[in-house]
Design a protein around this nucleic acid. Sequence first.
DNA 1: GTACCGTAGATCCTATAGGAAATGCGATTC
DNA 2: GAATCGCATTTCCTATAGGATCTACGGTAC
Lengths: 229, 229
Amino acid sequence: MATKNQASGGVSRQVLADHVYEALLVALMDGRLEAGTPVSIDGMARELDVSPTPVREALARLEATGMVRRMALRGYRVAPLFTPDELADLMDARLVIEPANAFMACKHAGQELTGQLEQAIEDLKAAPRGPSFAEFRAYWEADERFHRLIAESAANQFLLSAYNALGGQVQRFRFFGGLGVTDADFAIAEHTEILKAFEAGDPELARQKMIDHIEGVKQRSQHDSEVRS
Amino acid sequence: MATKNQASGGVSRQVLADHVYEALLVALMDGRLEAGTPVSIDGMARELDVSPTPVREALARLEATGMVRRMALRGYRVAPLFTPDELADLMDARLVIEPANAFMACKHAGQELTGQLEQAIEDLKAAPRGPSFAEFRAYWEADERFHRLIAESAANQFLLSAYNALGGQVQRFRFFGGLGVTDADFAIAEHTEILKAFEAGDPELARQKMIDHIEGVKQRSQHDSEVRS
DNA sequence: GTACCGTAGATCCTATAGGAAATGCGATTC
DNA sequence: GAATCGCATTTCCTATAGGATCTACGGTAC
């Protein structure tokens, strides 16, 4: 496996646990680690050519994201995929948090933010839409960036933590990874509406447009769930 | 199968990292570990008479709660106390999440839940109100239980995760730990209002009463902040 | 044929040891 | 008197080894 020692700064010494964490995350996102698969500490250590200790630390951190689950004395397993009901619950939770984020972010919004949001939308338009993980990843990254920019611009560390706690954002990636992009045109249009509200400096409108967007995602994801099953 | 050496009853082998985690949590809550204090892995291992490995794992988990912070290659430190502004942000975040929890929980509410909520209020009334940690802890426990019951009864794992992400609930304990209980009478009255809404089966009212409660907590906490400073 | 038991393998958990980096302190030099 | 260099100590990070536990498989008895 190609070594990524080129991290800037010339810091020769890096924390191995961080590399392991990244490697596991990529493996989870790429679907190499399927839902329910046990993640052996020793086995992963052999595979990544490190000792079990950093693997243990990386898994302890991953557990907080919900990507893996730990059973005492029985090791770790990849968390199961979402059921359609859980997906609906995730959208309900997003409906609680993200409109509030949009409202607050809009109050602090400036040129810089709207520019970055616009860039995220452009990237969304440019992203390929095929079903392969590599293709989907670019799309997902632009989508995630749009929402994260808003969450961060709300300037409230606790709301940001709450947003991050919806680790399902990543799970969602896994869910649709094999399905491809099905709602790109809708998402682009809805994101644009949100951006307009930001440019107009209308927090209440931004909140409403975010609600509209997530409601749309919810409905479309439920439809996709039926297709999948 | 006579042998049930697996879970609860078995004293045989508990995971050491869990004990370390608990010990650190108690030390943080009791104020033995003050804000900003570095938490040495080796030192803590010596103090608890274990090897550094389980300490490392416990700290990795604690980091996700926000109680400690990790700086790569420089170890862990106890997270700083909240400033009044941060406390206000925490209350704003609670205002986003907890009213929604109350609304949803009320829709599923039954005899069992209202009984447990009532018990939590009774415990709140009975709790001592002195400034010592031991006294305050009982009060805090009953208060936290009330809110957590509602969060869990919302029956949405993502909203529960978001609630948990406001680890500030614990930080809040630390903040007021040295100050004692100043708003017990208000809190009891407001909790009772919420309970009434649950008993009436009125989700919208429950939402509103939760808003009122947290708004009250926010105002009173800001007043306390001024006293402290 | 079914159920129970013992052994073997794999895995997890903990402890100890060693290498590397950062911090603190003191001596030297300008 | 102030800044810089060098050394020693502390601390963190990783690797390896050993003890304990759980699972799987095969054999035996009913």
